[in-house]
Design a protein around this nucleic acid. Structure first.
Lengths: 345, 345
DNA sequence: TATTAGCACTCCGAACGGATGAGTGCTAAC
DNA sequence: GTTAGCACTCATCCGTTCGGAGTGCTAATA
């Protein structure tokens, strides 16, 4: 009775158990199921089946004489094969005010917020990694005697800037030339594409001011790294208190910390962007997550694209018994909307 | 026996009670005090005195037959008159790496972090309100056909920027003129000083491009407001879990939320900047705080100044039984250090 | 052979009831 | 005014009890 396959009936029962548990958050017993499902079986029969399901690892008992709750393996199966998405979410979300904005970062912030209030889970949104963005415009200008302001605009109108101390005095004319040089050479290039060869070439062209070119490149590189490269916005952190299994002081503290030190979330972002396939939506259940402090959570991530290869990640973090259908639906619809908003142009 | 003044002895006893409670976090009984203090009194005498102190409102009993804990009024008295500051903290802090940085915001972030790890409380640091900062430099430049990039640098090298859609095409020469116009008129002025009169005057000078001037001013105003004007950095939020009286799920959730929605902290900032006097350090105990969600906390704030009138606020949020001496000392030393760092130049 | 009814059993959680001990308030003596 | 002494209160701990939910197993049933 142990190593058999999951037959039709077992699947139905497992499905019922999970659905019920997602709703109530309480261990579910055989009697409940025997009424809940359409297949008319007595609780005794259900019990036998449940014993099998437990042996196979799909469900588990918090303690003897308690009902069953889904195991990670159970959730996994559910998410992989038994889930029906709620497409109606898409319509609802259309109403949510996600509007295109001149500056992407501002919009992404609002995405995080909207998602958090809408789902009742914690959310994170990573801005497209800047180093893959293309440079739109570079501008050097003199602020005062000793200081030069370097401004770099990349796609999405993300603007980086840095103040450079220029010891040697540079006259306005050379500044103009440098601007021209930098723009013609670097515009349209992604930041990570800038090669050493290009830099030396530019230095050569700059002649006596080659030093300045180096400084500017350094400043650019610096201003990119400065913000830890990957900008991440979070929202709804305090939603975790809505789920007793996460509100435990120790776990909560760890989670809060993770959200504050956004850097820890980069692993999640990287993993999502790397392991992408199909719909671009990924579900991490419990231990599957790359972030240590989320071992008792489930995380659903999606990749979005704002045209021209600017890709970022959206993540929703909640308890394992999160409403996967709703979350996946919501993420699908929101990435779709982002796609639409930024495709036109 | 009720409406008498606090005599010497009562003060000593109250002092002892508070000190003891700050250390242990447990209600303190008469026996403890009778041994703790130098005035050799039996527990019975202490009990009588304690009854008086309670009647006067300086201490209270969590329940009959428990020891006493300080009331808000008790803490207040302690902070106002009985506290001896630990000046040695100053030396310790010197070791902490607070270094001047080109961009203030980055440094303030690190201040928040250093304070949080050093004190084990939650911290917030507000950046100087931008609108009181003076403009150092303005630069308009053409990004492409239809778009102009406006960059404004204010004191502290805080850099704001905005993209302006320019319908009418402006040639390079007028752009130069506009730059000159803006810089000569606005540099050295604080953002809030810009008056309508100045704007109209500039528009007149700009001639046919008066519209552009308006746009730029709008853009500047916008980019200031955009970031909710007041930038606030927080750190160590999860420290609140170290204090059981705050770790309670409901309170914790509220607090976390306050730190996430930094906007709520502006009241604290405003109150601090307004009610400033003497040392510039303020202590809010329990209900005294202007922020609703911190009713069960104490908050200590300080005003710092980065030369030339750029003033901001540092706040430390912890349980009522926080180590006021250490916190006040730390804040004093750190504001002092900031002052030093930014005075030289 | 699969399903079901029935029953003994397990375990959690809430409720109860002493002990224990810390701490108080009060009184009477010093 | 101070103190010793005592009765009293109350939180906390711990063992017990008890009911309920749910299980596993067995034997009867279709």
């Amino acid at each position: 009775m142990a190593d058999q396959e999951l037959d039709e009936r077992k699947i139905k029962i497992l499905h019922a158990i999970i659905r019920n548990y997602l709703e109530t958050g309480e261990p579910v017993g055989s009697r409940t199921i025997s009424k809940y499902t359409d297949l008319n079986l007595s609780s005794a029969t259900i019990r036998n089946e449940m014993a099998d399901l437990e042996e196979m690892g799909y469900i588990l008992q918090p303690h003897t004489s308690a009902g069953r709750i889904p195991s990670d393996k159970g959730y996994r199966l559910y998410v992989d094969t038994m889930m029906e998405e709620k497409d109606r979410e898409i319509e609802e979300l259309k109403e949510l005010m996600i509007e295109r904005e001149e500056k992407v970062d501002r919009m992404l912030k609002s995405v995080a917020k909207v998602l958090a209030t809408n789902t009742n889970y914690a959310t994170m949104v990573s801005a497209p990694a800047i180093r893959t963005n293309k440079i739109k415009f570079i501008q050097l200008s003199r602020m005062n005697e000793g200081q030069i302001l370097a401004v770099v605009v990349v796609e999405g109108n993300v603007i980086k800037n840095n103040v450079i101390d220029s010891d040697g005095s540079i006259d306005d004319e050379t500044l103009l030339k440098l601007n021209l040089l930098l723009n013609t050479n670097l515009c349209g290039k992604a930041l990570e594409e800038i090669s050493l060869a290009m830099i030396t070439a530019m230095k050569q062209q700059a002649g006596i001011h080659s030093e300045m070119v180096g400084n500017v490149i350094d400043a650019i590189a610096d201003s990119i790294k400065s913000e830890e490269d990957l900008q991440i916005y979070t929202s709804g952190t305090n939603n975790i208190f809505k789920y007793p299994e996460l509100a435990d002081s120790r776990k909560a503290s760890d989670l809060i910390n993770t959200f504050e030190e956004k850097q820890m979330l980069t692993e999640l972002v990287n993993d999502t962007l790397a392991g992408e396939e199909g719909s671009g939506i990924q579900v991490y259940i419990g231990d599957e997550t790359p972030v240590q402090s989320m071992k008792d959570c489930s995380v659903v991530t999606a990749t979005y694209e704002l045209g021209e290869g600017m890709r970022g990640t959206i993540g929703i973090i909640g308890p394992k018994r999160m409403d996967y259908e709703k979350v996946v639906g919501t993420l699908k619809s929101i990435t779709h909307r982002l796609d639409e908003l930024y495709k036109k142009k």
